[in-house]
Write a protein that binds this DNA or RNA. Structure first.
Length: 563
RNA sequence: UGGGGCGUAGCCAAGUGGCAAAGGCACCGGGUUUUGAUCCCGGCAUUCGUAGGUUCGAGUCCUACCGCCCCAGCCA
């Protein structure tokens, strides 16, 4: 009764789906569970899909089963190969392996077609000539039953001939469909003679022009699961109603097995929108720079932003699986990267908004080497050296002309420790004509090299710094939440785009980083001490002109205190 | 007014009739600290949507009511 997570084993109780899988395994019903992740290749994967991927692949890992990657590609008018490739890349990047179990629903088109004829022969499906509009009208409403189609009682022979005609391209798009013959009076609307096949004159990304009829989800999904001998078919809550049809198809046809569909609640996060339609709108209307904009919660956006696959897996592990629709705080996701990166990211120093400091009593031509730890809690990550010289940069907000008592940083007459360096005391400062502070003059205590003093005097504040002449110039993109309210699409009357956060991206240039950052690889996360986690942007950086993304800030109790 | 689901703390979430309602996030205190970070310690539901009922005993069973989500694509 335990699950294995990346940070070791935990004794967390199993969620309700794992309990079922566990029981089925122990009872011998399904010694080897087989699950599947069935994306439609019509868009990019997002954090919500990650939940499903972690669930399906996670179960197969934990119970010694297998998990298939199956593309649900039954709608050629919306699907494209580019999406197939990006989805495969994203699943792999998240750390999962479908081995040789890569499938496409379109691979089953021949078999699916045969099953459709089988249904016709059994008198359980018919070709209907009603228009889309008429079908809708005949379907009835939530409270009124539907009425039978006039084509409902055609003979099996006639249906077969018509259906073959559909397949052979004898009829125009929209003129006829194949429908299951179930019950137009059923309380469940999905059972009111659902459409199984429609005519679509579009070329399919895999089957080309071989077909001009395509099966719909309700017919395809259950049979694909069956053909792959899926044991547990996991999907989101909105498919609960479809389960009766899923079961009807498999019960009505002659099939060797009958997978069990189990529904769970999809992921909702505060301060964002999750629907593909809305994400697409953000891209199309250029509110973001593309599907992989670091502010997007697509897998590719998160990857570029600097989220680690492990942090996403841990996040999915943390939020659990249930059946009630819920909202997870965005903070939980942010915390997941923080937790992961805190443990692994090397620490470096970077000054985002530089303020020049001149150490008045430091020899003008001297440069010293200062040893700094790469990770205070992990000595095994080693040390590095930093150049120290007379002119430095510190963070502009680490100085206040008239600081309050609780401000532990620099102010006139105040002493602070330069991390791993010396204690310095501010003696004066220069201002420009606008009153903006331009240069700080400080003195250093030569007896405090490394950051400790022999007399044991207390220095409350430690600030980061970079030697001016050795600094690497960089641009830094500060990212924040894309929306400024918890539920951007919470009120139907209000456009969710009205809640876009104008400060979701702040571009800083002229940032001063320690020299080691000159040769960092794209996508490798480091902690800029006291500020947050950053990584070199894979798309915007060019040789000699590095661009860093802020993955997430550090927790900041000082900011909280200021409020 | 039909059908399918769901209601345990600010947000997730265990709990499968019986010792005192797990755990995480958030929040609030305190300690350590050369990152106002990390880490550590403590606090945080006399009560499980509401009202009845069954029972020696109910978050768990029964009844009624209330609230929220999903379903009327030839989308998935």
């Amino acid at each position: 009764m335990s699950t294995i997570s990346d940070n070791g084993s935990s004794d967390r109780p199993l969620d309700f789906i794992r309990q079922i899988v566990d029981q089925d395994q122990k009872s011998g019903k399904h010694p080897v569970p087989v699950t599947r992740f069935p994306p439609e290749p019509n868009g990019f994967l997002h954090i919500g899909h990650a939940k499903s991927i972690c669930l399906n692949f996670g179960i197969s890992q934990e119970f010694g089963g297998q998990c298939h990657l199956r593309f649900d590609d039954t709608n050629p008018s919306k699907e494209e190969v580019e999406y197939v490739e990006s989805i495969k890349q994203d699943v792999q990047w998240l750390g999962f392996d479908w081995q040789d179990h890569l499938y496409f629903a379109s691979d089953y088109f021949d078999k699916l077609y045969d099953f459709a004829e089988q249904l016709i022969n059994r008198g359980r499906a018919y070709v209907c000539d009603l228009s889309a509009e008429e079908i809708r009208r005949f379907r009835g409403t939530l409270t009124e039953p539907g009425t039978d189609s006039p084509y409902r009682n055609r003979s099996a022979e006639e249906n077969l001939e018509l259906f073959r005609g559909m397949r052979d391209g004898a009829y125009p798009e929209g003129s006829r469909v194949l429908r299951a013959k179930i019950d137009m009076g059923a309380a469940a609307i999905v059972l009111r003679d659902p459409v199984l096949y429609r005519i679509v004159n579009a070329s399919h990304h895999r089957t080309g022009d071989k077909w001009c009829i395509y099966p719909l989800y309700d017919f395809t999904h259950c049979l694909s699961d069956m053909l792959e001998q899926i044991t547990h078919s996991l999907c989101t809550l909105e498919f609960q109603d479809n389960r009766v049809l899923y079961d009807w198809v498999l019960d009505t046809l002659e099939t060797p097995c009958h997978p069990r569909q189990i529904e769970f609640a999809r992921l909702n996060l505060t301060y964002t929108v999750m629907s593909k339609r809305k994400l697409l709108q953000l891209v199309d209307e250029h509110h973001v720079d593309g599907w992989d904009d670091p502010r997007m919660l697509t897998i590719s956006g998160l990857r570029r932003r600097g989220y680690t696959p492990r942090s996403i897996r841990n996040f999915c592990d943390l939020i659990g699986i249930g059946k009630k629709q819920s909202w997870i705080d965005m903070g939980v996701l942010e915390n997941a990267v923080r937790e992961d990166l805190n443990a692994t990211a090397p620490r470096v120093m970077g000054v985002l908004e530089p303020l020049k400091v001149v150490i008045d009593n430091y020899p003008p031509d001297q440069t010293e080497e200062i040893t700094a730890q790469n990770h205070p809690q992990k000595p095994e990550l080693g040390t590095r050296t930093l150049p120290f010289s007379k002119e430095l940069y510190i963070e502009r907000n680490d100085f206040m002309e008239d600081p309050p008592r609780k401000f532990f940083r620099l102010g006139p007459g105040r002493e602070v420790r330069l991390r791993y360096g010396y204690y310095i005391t501010c003696v004066s400062y220069e201002q420009d004509e606008h009153g903006q502070v331009t240069v700080l003059h400080c003195t250093y205590d030569p007896q405090t090299k490394g950051g400790t003093s022999a007399d044991g005097r207390k220095v409350k504040g430690t600030i980061h710094w970079v030697s001016a002449k050795d600094a690497v110039d960089a641009e830094v993109y500060l990212y924040d939440r894309l929306f400024s309210v918890e539920h951007p699409d919470g009120v139907k009357e209000v456009d969710f785009k009205d809640h876009l956060n104008p400060d979701s991206r702040t571009i800083l240039s002229g940032c001063k980083l320690e020299p080691a950052l000159e040769s960092i690889e794209a996508g490798v996360q480091v902690q800029f001490e006291r500020q947050g986690y950053f990584c070199l942007d894979s798309a915007l950086s060019t040789p000699g002109r590095p661009v860093f993304n802020r993955v997430v800030t550090l927790r900041d109790s000082w900011a909280k205190m200021k409020k």
